[in-house]
């Protein structure tokens, strides 16, 4: 599904080169859910932006569905995103002069859905994220956590085969995080591929695999294991878990 070969991004900042991603080889299979973790500044956002064609690579290759993508121009990337990529930005990027409902329906319409399909999909997604009552609001009227959930709904509106998300729970309290976790679980079960940057261990623990970045390089990459003290544990075991 997604494959990168020696992917490099070097920003220029006031004439000084800033290496943000330094030789990443990442292979993600169709239907896989991969969480990307790592300290702030380790290159996580840069990496997912490049995978979505939102930031040009300095060198290396990006392959999507067996096709070379890093050599595509902007309009070809835009088409690819419309057809199969949903992107959740760390800072939402909602369209300010459109309602929440329109923000979410737009990508579905652009991908060729009928107005009715787009509306039904929007109603389903806003419902799942506890936002039904906010459909007619403007993004600026929403709290940060609400905007973040709208951004996730928008990214999922065209049923993308690849969901790229940059810290999609960074502004949520634990109840809203639970809604997002549930939706991500459904999306994963439906077979959509997910690559998601997160600090939140609850989100990461849903993934099939966790990739850790440090200074622009992968320092760990492995399946999420299972840990079991007892097959039928109760909350009482938490006392024991925490010593």
């Amino acid at each position: 599904m997604v494959n990168t070969v020696n992917l490099v991004k070097i920003y220029q900042s006031g004439g000084v080169p800033v290496p943000a991603v330094r030789g990443v080889d990442l292979r993600v299979e169709a239907g896989e859910f991969v969480a990307i973790m790592g300290p702030s500044g380790s290159g996580k956002s840069t990496l997912v932006h490049m995978l979505g064609g939102l930031d040009a690579r300095t060198s290396g290759e990006i392959w999507l569905d067996g096709r070379r993508a890093d050599t595509l121009g902007e309009s070809a990337w835009a088409l690819l995103r419309r057809q199969k990529i949903g992107f959740v930005f760390q800072f939402f990027n909602l369209i300010a002069n459109m309602t929440v409902a329109d923000n979410v329906e737009l990508p579905a319409l652009l991908a060729g859905a009928s107005p009715r399909e787009a509306r039904e999909r929007r109603e389903h997604l806003l419902g799942a994220l506890g936002l039904t009552g906010r459909a007619d609001a403007a993004p600026a009227q929403l709290a940060g956590g609400e905007q973040q959930r709208v951004a996730l709904a928008r990214a999922l509106a065209n049923k993308p085969s690849l969901l790229l998300a940059d810290e999609p729970t960074g502004n949520l309290d634990s109840r809203n995080t639970r809604d997002v976790l549930k939706l991500l679980t459904d999306v994963h079960r439906d077979g959509q591929t997910i690559i998601l940057v997160t600090h939140d261990a609850r989100v990461a623990s849903l993934a099939d695999r966790v990739v850790s970045l440090l200074d622009g390089q992968i320092v760990d990459d492995g399946a999420v294991g299972t840990f079991r003290r007892r097959p039928k544990g109760t909350a009482g075991d938490v006392v024991e878990l925490r010593g």
Binding site: M37, S205, L206, V210, G222, V224, G225, F227, T234, V238
Partner: peptide, 30 residues
Amino acid sequence: RRHYIALMRDLNELSERTDPADRVALLLIE
């Protein structure tokens, strides 16, 4: 890190299995 994430997965599953009315248990898990 891998161990912590596996522990978190276990806590997630535990919280799913816990009766939503059992506030004390859920707060402990949280």
